[in-house]
Design a binder for these strands. Structure first.
Lengths: 176, 176
DNA sequence: TACTTTGTTTAGTAATTACTAAACGTACAG
DNA sequence: CTGTACGTTTAGTAATTACTAAACAAAGTA
């Protein structure tokens, strides 16, 4: 590969690394994805190691995270013990997968703590005067409602495949 | 304030701290917001310091971040040199404000690097064979398109105030 | 069976991030 | 003009996170 073609790839890799960090992932995740995304065929772990300059351990972890999010797929070849990975190119599918992933982890549990506070308030625990309790319930309930809205929006998106992309664009055009 | 009422507040504060970290902010940001959100009237910086147990410096920084995102508003009282802060209770307004904030900072700049890669490829720099160049342009272009879509969705949301909340719910119901 | 080739896990380290404590700047009060 | 009551900034520190190097596990091959 020519030296400046290599340079362009390197730039792209750094760009995706920064974007990765912006979205709250380690930059190695972005780097690994960049390498896979610029390859026409699936790559082995060692090849990703070579192109990113990170170690096998780090790449193993990062690529597994990508796979869990649905941003890469793991494949294998007959008569070859290596695993191969290739980038998902349908980003809308990837987004649905990422949302589904987050749904079942921290986000749900975080929201749970708010619901718990609300339950305690409604159960009348915490001896406070009635007007204070009313106020607190109203506020925490409003936050809960907001989280529920986010949650159902997120669920809606994960079900978007039932609508065609055309309808999605129709919906978006309303917002223009 | 009764001991167990205090305990409920403390739980809520910890819950919001975790949520804050989940969304990529320091947990002190969540803690400060929790205190403000559970107060019926604006609070001074020192009062937030007292209720969170963090120091003035940290709270100063965290509250300023919240204000920049539109999650709290800074107010002041006549004949009182202190600044007071109160929580925004309209979360949809807050979301718009947060998106607008992010729009102008890292996100835009991150995307810029991808566009730059694409420009270089299209300009024909990087001596590589024609089929490889075609492939790379297609992939990077697809990513660029995706980012543009996110960008315009985000812009759409920041303009949502032109529609009533009723219409928003109508749109969402299509996705059910 | 022992040897190779692969991916994963772990213990330690480097880098980053968010905090504390204290100095500083500013503006009002006397 | 000086003192006081604030908010901000800064230098250093603690805590967290993502990495490396190396041990390990698994599974095929000789």
């Amino acid at each position: 590969m020519s030296k400046d073609a290599q340079h362009i790839r390197q730039e792209f890799l750094e760009g995706l690394s920064r974007i990765s960090r912006f979205w709250g992932f380690p930059k190695g995740v972005g780097a690994a994805f960049a390498v896979l995304y610029l390859s026409p065929e699936p790559l082995s772990l060692d090849e990703i190691v070579r192109q990113t300059g990170l170690t096998k351990g780090a790449i193993s972890t990062n690529v597994r995270a990508l796979a869990r999010m649905g941003l890469v797929q793991r494949t294998s070849r007959l008569g070859d013990r290596k695993d191969y990975y290739e980038a998902e190119t349908d980003f809308y599918r990837a987004i649905r997968s990422i949302l589904a992933e987050r749904q079942n982890t921290e986000f749900a549990r975080s929201i749970e703590t708010v619901r718990h506070t609300l339950d305690e308030l409604k159960a009348g625990r915490g001896s406070m005067d009635e007007s204070e309790r009313k106020f607190l319930i109203a506020r925490v309930q409003a936050l809960q409602d907001f989280f529920d809205a986010i949650d159902s929006l997120s669920r809606a998106v994960t079900r978007l495949d039932r609508l065609g992309i055309v309808n999605v664009q129709k919906v978006l055009s309303v917002l223009k």
